[in-house]
Design a protein around this nucleic acid. Structure first.
Lengths: 360, 360
DNA sequence: ATTTAGCACTTGAAACTTTTGAGTGCTAAA
DNA sequence: TTTAGCACTCAAAAGTTTCAAGTGCTAAAT
């Protein structure tokens, strides 16, 4: 709390009003906001000269920045932060968007398919790249192997948190029913409780142990699982091209850099590290530890059902993003995901190997 | 065959050499090719003046074009066509590329997953957007329904040509084993022989007929299938952002237009209509019926196994694409697909409903 | 008859210059 | 405390010049 120019917490009402207007005008126009347009657009009851001196103070306190001396002002990271924390009103979703979400996210398919749907919807509504990552600390609970035909097996992996993933294994050889049973129990014995991120390692161990027993069939199965899971660890990336809609991306080099960045696992990982309690995580511009992300804002939420963490959804866009709409849309998605999407039902669990009996 | 300036078939050797050089220089440099650079780069044994007058003739005959009067020449559609048909030498794939293809395309997963792998590999090697479409005249041969847990069913669709597609249905209610059997036979009775593109319609009919019998479970199953198949009809689009690598896309508007175009089902469909016998189809620039494609070249091939047509792969890029590398890469992919990828095996067919007995 | 050196001409792109206008900070009056 | 007025700044747009790569044609050379 410095004595002279006050800290974040004590902007007077007029300053708040001005800061809020600058942020909103800039989000809308993408042009630095000048004192005159500000007065006109927002019907402020002061002359541009007054506003000008207020803006200067706001700049001195770090809420606004000037691209160059004869330009208007642009919010700084601190400015956006203050706006998001104290000034922003959450917008209501339009009926159109609500309908679109409800009609498109329907819960069909395995967990990844649902994640993909969600990412697509979000990136469409918000016109922004959207990334979903699975919770890979979730552990394998149960594996089923089903014979589809002579040389086709279907493998279903169910996780403790209730996600489902299926994959097809093509066999180089035919397989007996009892072999399948044997294989299934070996897989379950060895893999139950394994976190998804360690699955690859665990599968290698199984191969080493049991390869000879099944004349290559186990090998086929395990390779299929491996392949399928390696795909899963990739991020579900949607709508990267949406970034082109933003006026800050007129330069093709910037676009390329952005696409490279967002395709780089490490950078995305670093962006997504912390999401605390049940809130949205909002990391603005230079708040991002990763330098390459310093011009962007990342907003993330945890996808949860019955307190089980299934994955994380994030949108990445320029700092100048529509915070209000983004936040309210993501909150709606979070709510919908946790209440009305059947990914995981308590009474739909399978304990052990083949407990088909249920509890009705 | 006009008497005066000859038609496509009788360019003399020198003209062929020049045309070939212009095309190759232009593919490499993306700059209009002038007489002087042409002589230097290609060690032609004539002065630039001679080449100049030859180039003028080639222009008059329609093989070359001049962007403006003081610029070098650029191949016309006719020029590229002549080059591809008569002058081009197919390049050999680098060991690097061959390794990459062989290590990445591994045949794991269902048919769509394999298609996706292929599209990704091709777009990476050729740095060009790649589209795969399924053969949707293929018909359903057999449907299996497997109970995974109390409220989870797994549905596997096998087509006549041997492709496999699986999807998960989440039930709103629990299900008895005998219900599953009944449902499976109803599905098979009603859907066997249905072409994939008519599946949606056929599914609606099944719902109308049998909904009441299964208290909503059939409904859940059918909706899952519908959803899964609607995804499939979408094109498998890969590497759209690769278009940014081309110098013709410095303008962001062009990029946007291209992305819009390639996301438009109708345009892609029109581009992919004809592929005759077993050859690559190469449609250059204005040979495309669709006007929006007139600046692009589309090269397609049919993905076949044992004479069964499973889908079509196409790359779309600027007319100025590396025809030689593209064509040899695609031929390699085609060969690999038809010989070493197990999508469909004669002895892996399932006739009728649940012939688990095999023929060993 | 071909080929080529030479030259006048064209024109887009790059480099430079000028103009314009939106914006500023400061001062003095209200 | 507010504001009208004004000199000043500077990026962007518009306009200008220069430059270089290219052309076609002609007349001389092979």
């Amino acid at each position: 709390m410095s004595a002279k120019n006050g800290d974040s917490m004590n902007l007077d009402e007029r300053k708040k009003r001005i800061l809020s207007s600058v942020v909103e005008d800039y989000i809308e126009s993408a042009e630095p906001v000048g004192s005159k347009t500000l007065v006109e657009k927002n019907h402020l009851d002061y002359s541009s000269a007054t506003i000008r001196s207020e803006m200067k103070l706001l700049e001195e306190e770090g809420y606004l920045e000037q691209p160059h001396i004869s330009a208007g002002r642009v919010p700084s990271t601190k400015g956006y932060r203050y706006y998001v924390d104290n000034l922003m009103k959450e917008s209501k979703l339009s009926m159109l968007d609500i309908d679109y979400i409800n009609n498109t996210i329907n819960g069909f398919g395995d967990t990844d398919a649902i994640f993909e749907q969600i990412a697509n919807v979000v990136s469409k509504i918000l016109s922004t790249p959207t990334v979903i990552t699975r919770n890979n600390t979730d552990t394998i609970e149960n594996i089923k192997v089903v014979k589809i035909s002579e040389k086709l097996l279907l493998i279903v992996l169910m996780s403790k948190n209730g996600t489902v993933k299926d994959c097809i294994a093509k066999l180089t050889d035919t397989v007996e029913d009892n072999v399948i049973e044997q294989m299934t129990s070996i897989l379950n014995e060895n893999l139950s409780g394994t976190p998804l991120k360690e699955l690859h390692l665990a599968l290698n161990k199984v191969i080493q142990k049991d390869l000879q027993l099944f004349s290559g069939i186990m090998n086929d199965v395990i390779n299929s699982i491996k392949y399928e899971m390696s795909k899963d660890l990739k991020k579900l990336n949607s709508g990267v091209e949406k970034i082109l809609e933003n006026p800050e991306f007129t330069d093709i080099e910037k676009v390329k850099n952005f696409i490279n960045m967002i395709s780089t696992k490490e950078i995305i990982d670093s962006a997504l590290q912390k999401t605390e309690n049940d809130k949205l995580s909002i990391v603005i511009g230079s708040e991002n530890k990763e330098v390459l992300l310093n011009d962007y804002t990342v907003i993330s939420l945890d996808l949860k059902q019955d307190d089980k963490y299934l994955g994380k959804l994030s949108v990445i866009g320029p700092k100048r993003m529509d915070y209000s709409k983004t936040i309210s849309t993501l909150k709606y998605i979070k709510e919908k995901f946790s209440t009305s999407l059947i990914i995981n039902k308590n009474n739909d669990k399978v304990k052990g190997d083949n407990s088909e009996e249920g509890r009705k």
